[in-house]
Amino acid sequence: MFYLEKNKLEHSVTDWPAFYCEQAANAAYPALKAFYQAGCQLPDTPLEQVQMVALDLETTGLDVNKHSIVSIGLVPFTSKRIFLSQAKYWVVKPVSQLNDNSVVIHGITHSEIETAQDLSFILDEFLTEISGKIVVAHYANIEKSFLKRAFIHRINEGIQFPVIDTMSLEAKICRYRPLSWWDKLKGKQAVSLRLSDARNRYHLPYYKPHHALTDALACAELLQAQIAYTQKEQIYLADIWE
């Protein structure tokens, strides 16, 4: 299929600001064009100056080809403060059927889905909210792939942006912590990178998972904690985005 080929063409961007310039020129959909025109923060920006937005999608399943988005949570933040008061949350009508299983998981009911609008109605607002900001997610592949797929489906154009992935950051951080002799003696297993387990290591409170806004907030808090715990004097955006 056409979009799959296009997808392959767009893998691994090395120069994000240049990529944004290029896309700003090429994008056809106005809001997407505006998103790219807003530009990308430079890789050498000190982290405390970076404007970020935590993103979480809840989907009907994990297969991007079969399942689709049911809700989106966004929380803008910086390394110092999480602007929960400016958070956004949308329930959208999935293209694929919502099965009973995911009703249980997300707590979103069929009737909410019935009254929800298609993603295309919120697309512009969504783009405005994330423009000029670096997207942060826990296991960002889901967000990246589902969004791209959803965009192509509606406006026939994909979307690509750099992300800070708190899960891969946590993996790096944990690898840096060798197991102590006592841990080895106990036969301790490799650490879990799940959002709630990662949060627990920083003494962050337990939140009920699988709600797009709660998970986005949980992710923003986790990144703040990860930054607070870093040994480095100064972190730049380039150190942690991908």
Partner: peptide
């Protein structure tokens, strides 16, 4: 709906002497 959030690592300074505050602080955890 007006609450913001911030994380502080143990030992870090949350309010400095002489700092002018623009928010009230409530400890979540």
């Amino acid at each position: 709906s007006n609450m913001d959030v911030a994380y502080y690592k143990a030992g870090s300074q949350i309010v400095e002497l002489g700092q002018l505050l623009d928010t009230w602080h409530v400890i979540r955890s």
